[in-house]
Computed example of a mutant assay.
Amino acid sequence: MQASESASAIAVDDLTRTFRGPQGGVKRAVDGLSLRVERGEMVGLLGPNGAGKTSTVKILMTVLLPTSGRARVLGHDVVAEAQTVRRLTGVILGGDQGLYARLSARDNLLLFADLYGLPYREQKRRVPELLDMVGLSGEARKRVESYSRGMKQRLHIARGLLHDPDVVILDEPSNGIDPVGARELRTLVREQVHQGRTVLLTTHYMFEADELCDRVVVMRDGRKIAEGTPESLKKQTDGQVVLTVHLNGAGEDDVARVRALPGIQSVSLSDRDAGQVLDVHSGLKTDVTAAVLAELRGVSVLQVFKREPTLEDAYVSLISGAPR
């Protein structure tokens, strides 16, 4: 079926989705969201848990109805023309869901090819082609239950591309995969855009969005709070200095004292390896190292260095500064 002519591959206008809460209140999972994904473009949908990313993706997948507003894929309304949208869209999820563990990779793909309605002659060509593309030809007859997580993710990609969709939705495809597997997966994803497909990607990995995406949309509390290329979002941190302190024994009181210093825009403390890492964002042109270290009295400081802001820094700044 031919896709109708439309300026954007994905068009979302004033989309809202509400849920009834356990206490009878109404929660807005998606709150007046509008966005565009152009044909042949890869756009990343970023945000913390509960930001509304999954609800937005489920609406585009036609498995969740919007409360109000409109969403279209290649010009087709996701509610009124759900069947057409499903034919034009490939959905690639993560984990064990969506695969039959006791079947081989080949049999999984043949089963889903039947469900997609692919003719037998097309199945014979398409299944080996996709298994080869994702690097599973040699493991094609092994049960999926014996696969590593990375292999399962590659099989998910093959499954989502069986019917040769124009639009691909990837929901955290590299979550939980080792670095080598994640790099291979990013290569596969990048190839889909080179082949002319449109890709919408949700991810918690900022470096992944920075490497792959033409644009990113940042969501919080169901709303869009920022949009632009990774470079343009990083430029919003111009003038910032990111001070990274490796330390041990820091607590909330130490973080609060650093946060109270003049010119400090955000402070985050995280556990990493055998110690802690304190990231300090300063809008001051002057060096704040001495002032920060002075507030970390009684803490074991192991290493201190300054660096240029990354997309993750821009994201943290946006999320921290967005009104709830």
Rank of each mutant, 00 (worst) to 15 (best):
T203K: 04
R197D: 07
D178W: 13
V189W: 00
V180Q: 15
E211L: 15
Q195N: 09
E211K: 06
Q195T: 02
P179D: 09
H194L: 15
V189A: 07
Q195Y: 04
V199M: 05
E208V: 08
H204D: 02
E191R: 15
Y205Q: 13
Y205N: 13
G196R: 05
D210Y: 02
T198D: 05
Q192R: 10
D210E: 12
T202L: 10
H204M: 07
F207P: 00
T203L: 07
G196D: 06
Q195W: 03
A182Q: 10
E191M: 10
V189I: 15
R183H: 13
G181K: 14
E211I: 03
L200S: 03
D178N: 13
T203R: 04
M206Q: 04
T203S: 09
T198E: 02
P179Y: 10
E184Q: 15
T198F: 01
T187F: 06
P179L: 12
Q192E: 13
A182I: 12
R186C: 09
A209R: 07
T203Q: 02
R197N: 06
T187V: 13
F207Q: 12
E208N: 07
Q195D: 11
V199P: 00
E191Q: 13
V199R: 01
T203I: 08
G181M: 15
E208Q: 11
D210N: 08
V193C: 07
L188H: 03
V193M: 09
E208S: 09
D210R: 06
Y205S: 08
L185Y: 08
E191G: 10
P179C: 11
H194S: 14
E211M: 11
T187E: 15
D178T: 13
V189T: 03
D210I: 04
H194N: 13
P179H: 08
V199F: 01
D178V: 13
T187C: 05
Q192D: 05
A182C: 11
L201R: 05
V180S: 14
T202Q: 05
V199C: 02
E184C: 10
A209C: 07
V193W: 03
E191N: 08
T202C: 13
R197H: 07
L188K: 08
A182W: 10
M206S: 03
H194D: 14
T198G: 03
Q195G: 09
A182F: 11
G181T: 14
V189G: 00
A209T: 02
D210K: 05
E208I: 09
E184W: 12
D210G: 04
A209D: 06
E191A: 14
R186Q: 13
V193E: 04
E191F: 02
T202E: 04
V199H: 00
L188I: 11
R190H: 09
Y205P: 01
T202N: 11
A182Y: 08
L188Y: 03
Q192F: 06
G181Q: 14
E191P: 01
Q195P: 00
E191V: 01
V193F: 01
F207D: 11
R197G: 05
V199K: 02
F207H: 10
D178S: 12
Y205K: 07
H194E: 15
Y205V: 14
P179K: 10
D178I: 14
A182H: 09
R183F: 11
